[in-house]
Design a binder for these strands. Structure first.
Lengths: 193, 193
DNA sequence: TAGTGTTTTTGATAAATGTCAAAGGAAAAG
DNA sequence: CTTTTCCTTTGACATTTATCAAAAACACTA
C-alpha cells in the first residue's frame, strides 16, 4: 500500500537543520494552511495583530511601517523563508507593522496559538521554532552591523552582492528605505559606478 | 529533611516565562559555572570562538569589534541577561567579536555543547533556549528600527529614556559607537539640551 | 500611438554628521 | 599636592546624506 505524501517545500527548508518526526510533521500540516494570493494582497493590515507565522513557498513579501508619514521597509521575505510581525506575535500586542505581498505568492499560514500548542506537545517542533528564530537573529545581527557603521554606498553594494535578485524584483523606492536612505541618494549611488 | 536550594537569580529571570522542572533545573545547574571576574576581564578574546552562553548575574559586559581600526560597540549586557557571540555560537565559526567586562562581574557560563545536549534531553530547556533567543530578537528589532531611520539625537534620547543607568556606568566613547555615531557628535548632542 | 500614471534620475541647496586637532577636566598614580 | 593619563568638550572644516522641485524614463491602458 502506498502512502502518498505531497511534497511540501516547507519541510525541505527546515529538514537540513531540524529533524521532524512523521507524527510532528502531520501535526504541523494540520494547522498549516496553504493559500495563493495576488500581488498587493495585505497579509497583516495596519492596526491588526499578526496572529500567524507565514512561510513563503513562492513570491515575495514586504514588512513595513509608517514613520513621520514616510513608508519604511523593515524587511523583505522571499521564497523558503518565514515572516511575521515579530513584536506583535511575541508580546501579542498590536504594532504598526504591516505585511504586504509584492508578487503573486503561495503562502503557508500557521496560527500562532496553534503553534504554541504544538510547541507544548512536540519537542521537535519547539526545536524548529528555536531554529527559525535563531536564524532570524543571526540575520538581524548582520543587518544591524550594516546600519551601525557602514556608509550608504557600502550597504548598497552589500545588498547587491548578497541579494542581487531582490534589486530586480523590487522598486528602488522600497529598497532605499530598507537600506535606511532616501530614494534620491540610492539613485545617485547607483549612477556613480 | 530540608532540601537546601541556593537561590540562583538565573532562574528568577526565566521562570516568569518558562517553567523549568526540578530535574531540568539541576541538569542546568550541573553545566553552569559561576565565576567572579574583575573589571576589564575578557570573556571572549579576538579570534577566539565563543563556546559559551553567559548569564550576567551582576556587572556589565560589552560586545565589540574593530572595523577599519575603529572600536565599535555592538551590545551592552547588564544584570539578569544573556550574552554570547551570536554568529559564532550558532554557526560555530570564529568571528571578530570580543566580549569584555566593564565592571567587576558575576558570570554564569554554560558551554554551548553541553547546552545542546540538554536541549536534546529536556523539552523545557529547549523552550528556555527559544525564549531567550526570541527575547533577544525582539530587542534587536527595536535597535534596528532605531538605526534605520532615526537621527542621532533621537537615538540618544531613546537610550536616555530606556536605559538611563547605562549612561552613568559607561564612558561616552563606548556609548557613541553603540549609537552608531562618533564621540564628538554625541558630545555635541548632549550639550545642546 | 497618444495619453496617463508611476518610477527613476538630476539639480540646487540645506542639514546632519564625520574628521582632525587641540584644549579643558576629571580621575588615578606617584 | 603634583603629575600623568584618560575622558570629554570645543572649533574649523570636509563629507555625506536629506530635502524640495522638476525633468526624464518607463509601463500600462485606451
Amino acid at each position: 500500500m502506498f502512502k502518498t505524501e505531497k511534497k511540501v517545500s516547507f519541510f525541505d527548508t527546515i529538514s537540513p537543520f531540524v529533524k521532524i518526526s512523521p507524527k510532528s510533521r502531520s501535526a504541523l500540516l494540520s494547522v498549516m494552511q496553504k493559500d495563493h494570493y495576488p500581488k498587493g494582497h495585505v497579509l497583516v493590515p495596519l492596526g491588526g495583530i499578526c496572529r500567524h507565522v507565514y512561510y513563503i513557498e513562492k513570491g515575495l513579501s514586504r514588512t513595513f511601517y509608517i514613520k513621520d508619514g514616510k513608508d519604511i521597509t523593515e524587511k523583505f521575505c522571499t521564497e523558503n523563508s518565514f515572516t511575521c510581525s515579530m513584536p506583535a506575535s511575541i508580546v501579542n500586542v498590536p504594532d504598526n507593522r504591516q505585511i504586504e505581498l509584492l508578487e503573486p505568492s503561495i503562502i503557508w499560514s500557521m496560527p500562532y496559538t496553534e503553534l504554541e500548542k504544538l510547541y507544548d506537545d512536540y519537542h521537535d517542533i519547539e526545536r524548529m521554532g528555536r531554529f527559525v528564530v535563531t536564524n532570524e537573529l543571526v540575520h538581524m545581527h548582520q543587518r544591524l552591523s550594516d546600519l551601525q557603521f557602514r556608509s550608504a554606498e557600502e550597504r548598497y553594494n552589500n545588498l547587491l552582492q548578497k541579494n542581487p535578485d531582490l534589486l530586480q524584483r523590487v522598486s528602488l523606492g522600497l529598497i532605499s528605505s530598507y537600506l535606511g536612505i532616501t530614494q534620491e541618494t540610492l539613485s545617485r549611488i547607483r549612477s556613480r559606478v
